[in-house]
């Protein structure tokens, strides 16, 4: 009887567990398996760690890793901008609801659409540069996506432009639920705007900020493909090559070496995991702290 009672919950869970294993577990196992083979079509001979060796010694992969690392610089920038704008909106200036909608609009646009629009606007002779030239700022009319010095920073700018909206809405939602008494007390005590931000708002929104940071890190490591592919295709040269594009090139574009693509996917998975585990631990610790 006791034994049956123990199994009963698992029986109820079994269908969902099977779905999860099939949709997440199988692809993960398959990717690990692929990464150890020279895949032609859907299988190939076992070659041990050769794919990893090829990846590790490939200069293009090194560049991709560096570029993903540089893109991570956008995370604190996005977080800061989103927080400041959210706090400004929280002060409810005239028309704040309209501003909130406007700032959120970029996030609801599909990434490829954003990419296409910006890749047209930011061409050497595109709208942005023509506008700058028309007001005599020729010196600022740079080759935003055609120059290897600028292209990665341009992509970072576009990512920030789009993703900040998500942060604003998250932070604003949390700010709306803060106990107003805390802010009133700070005002009565003579706290400045910055002091209220730093000593009241930030601690109160800590868990949401951490969540946004986690999501943004994942974005910069594993969700920038659409921006890069549409805006620069990884160029000029290798100036905007990132790990996802490297995977795509080997899996689909021309190279047809899914084994190497899988090896990079495994590396990317492990790196993302290495970032995520401590961050999630930190977050659950701070949640426990808040609850206590």
């Amino acid at each position: 009887m006791l034994r049956t009672a123990r199994l009963t919950p698992w029986l109820y869970l079994a269908p969902m567990l099977l779905v999860l294993i099939f949709t997440f577990g199988y692809p993960l196992v398959a990717i690990f398996d692929f990464s150890l083979r020279r895949i032609r079509g859907i299988s190939g001979p076992f070659i041990g760690l050769e794919n990893y060796r090829q990846v590790i010694k490939d200069d293009v992969f090194h560049e991709a890793v560096v570029h993903n690392g540089i893109l991570l610089l956008a995370v604190p920038i996005m977080t800061f901008i989103a927080l400041i704008l959210a706090v400004l909106l929280f002060d409810r200036p005239r028309g704040w609801q309209a501003y909130r909608s406007l700032l959120y609009v970029p996030f609801i646009l599909a990434t490829p659409v954003v990419g296409v629009i910006f890749s047209n606007m930011l061409q050497l002779n595109g709208v942005v540069n023509e506008g700058l030239r028309s007001i005599g700022l020729d010196v600022l009319a740079l080759d935003w996506i055609g120059s290897p010095r600028l292209a990665l920073w341009t992509i970072m700018g576009v990512v920030i432009w789009r993703e900040v909206g998500f942060g604003i809405v998250l932070f604003l939602a949390r700010l709306m639920s803060i106990n107003e008494d805390l802010l009133d007390a700070a005002r009565v005590d003579g706290a400045s705007w910055w002091q209220r931000l730093w000593h009241v708002i930030v601690p109160q929104t800590k868990s949401v900020i951490e969540f946004f940071i986690v999501v943004s890190i994942i974005t910069m490591l594993a969700w920038v493909f659409a921006y890069v592919y549409v805006i620069t295709h990884g160029g000029p040269g290798t100036a905007t090559m990132v790990m996802e594009l490297y995977i795509y090139n080997f899996a689909f574009r021309m190279s047809q070496l899914p084994g190497i693509a899988s090896a990079v996917a495994v590396i990317l998975f492990l790196v993302t995991l290495a970032f995520m585990v401590p961050l999630f631990r930190l977050r659950s610790a701070s949640e426990m702290e808040e609850m206590s």
Partner: peptide, 22 residues
């Protein structure tokens, strides 16, 4: 040309020549 030559040599070379890197 093999696929990897397309992505890592042809594509890279032509763009890097234009950008003055090569």
């Amino acid at each position: 040309m093999p696929g990897v030559f397309w992505t890592d040599a042809m594509f890279v070379n032509s763009q890097k020549i234009i950008s003055g890197e090569y």
